[in-house]
């Protein structure tokens, strides 16, 4: 029976179909885990502030997300009369999709992962650069002062961190000799997790990763305490929801990227000595990503927002030289070993 159905189409088509099904499963898993990040964040913030957080709806409050989502879906989607309608609608779509897109590059397990593009890292830089248009356009089209300030800040912040983000990851590219994320993970399995040789790159990348997702302490574009809600002050209903969930998708995406780039992807720690640990690659990927997702929340719980100019001078005066030195040092070592 199954073989008869299988023989109806050529195997290539089945492969394509299977790849599509995989992509949809990964997309759904990503969005759902991003939504439940909201619950995780509220519970963890509660833990670190000596309170409980949402713990009533369902087991441990897990149902809170469903309730919140239902509420935000049925909220009135009100558009202020003074906004620029087209860009106002476009901005949340960009915010969500540009955070979703890079996840297709992340190798989850040896045979799961949407795409294995040879220019993987560059694609990520491109989408991270485009993602700032969401904030800029949202702030600009809202036609209100708070939003505009949020948008402006976001632009300045982007110019500051994108430079050293790119340069910090170039060290990895020099060392592994590829832009392809899957091959970077495979390189780490053969040699060593990149966190050890590329420690300074990891430091700057961690800062840049927080800045990409606009999370505290780099949440200057939204800065609730100064700018109402920054660039999404005028948004309501599901448009706001897309900005909101987009932020959490960004966290999941950056955590996944960090796992793949610096911590050996799906590879189990001490897998060489305890081979049975390597039988569950997805579990390791999930554990490592979850660790970084929780670190995002810990940062938010612990650190205050820096002043605007402090953030920029730290980016230009500390992070940029550090990542440049790291790149030059890596290149020198690679040349020396190669020669």
């Amino acid at each position: 029976m199954i073989e008869q159905i299988y023989s109806l189409l050529p195997p290539v088509v089945w492969d394509i179909l299977w790849a599509m099904v995989k992509a949809v499963i990964i997309l759904l898993g990503l969005v759902i885990s991003a939504a439940w990040m909201i619950w995780l964040e509220r519970r963890l913030l509660g833990l670190w502030q000596d309170r409980y957080g949402p713990n009533r709806v369902g087991l441990w409050g897990l149902g809170q997300v469903i309730a919140d989502m239902l509420k935000i879906f049925f909220k009135e989607d009100w558009m202020p009369p003074f906004v620029d309608k087209f860009t106002f609608t476009l901005a949340p779509a960009i915010a969500m999709s540009m955070m979703l897109l890079p996840f297709c590059l992340i190798p989850i397990t040896p045979n799961w992962g949407v795409a294995s593009a040879d220019l993987g890292l560059l694609f990520f830089f491109a989408t991270a650069g485009l993602a700032v248009y969401a904030v800029m356009l949202g702030g600009w089209s809202s036609n209100s002062k708070y939003s505009l300030l949020g948008g402006l800040r976001s632009t300045a912040q982007t110019i500051s961190y994108e430079v050293f983000m790119g340069i910090s990851l170039m060290g990895i590219v020099v060392q592994t000799g590829t832009f392809n994320l899957r091959e970077i993970v495979l390189w780490q399995q053969e040699h060593v997790w990149l966190i050890f040789p590329q420690f300074f790159a990891f430091l700057t990348w961690a800062l840049a990763g927080v800045a990409v997702t606009h999370r505290t302490p780099f949440d200057l574009p939204e800065a609730e305490s100064e700018l109402a809600a920054g660039y999404h002050t005028e948004y309501s209903g599901m448009k706001f929801g897309m900005f909101f969930v987009g932020e959490y998708v960004g966290i999941v995406m950056v955590s996944g990227l960090t796992t793949a780039l610096f911590f050996g992807g799906w590879e189990a720690p001490f897998g060489d000595y305890l081979p049975f640990l390597n039988t569950v690659p997805f579990l390791w990927f999930a554990i490592k990503s979850l660790f970084f997702m929780s670190s995002f929340i810990l940062l938010r719980a612990a650190l205050p927002r820096p002043r605007y100019d402090h953030m920029m001078s730290a980016a230009w005066k500390v992070c940029l030289p550090m990542s440049l030195l790291n790149l030059i040092g890596t290149a020198a070592v690679v040349l020396w070993l190669g020669a």
């Binding site: 509660g46 833990l47 670190w48 000596d50 409980y52 810990l298 612990a302 650190l303």
Partner: peptide, 13 residues
């Protein structure tokens, strides 16, 4: 300060 906040995980609520 990150470490100090993390130690709150072990405090009673």
């Amino acid at each position: 300060s990150i470490g100090m906040i993390f130690m709150h995980s072990f405090r009673p609520r």
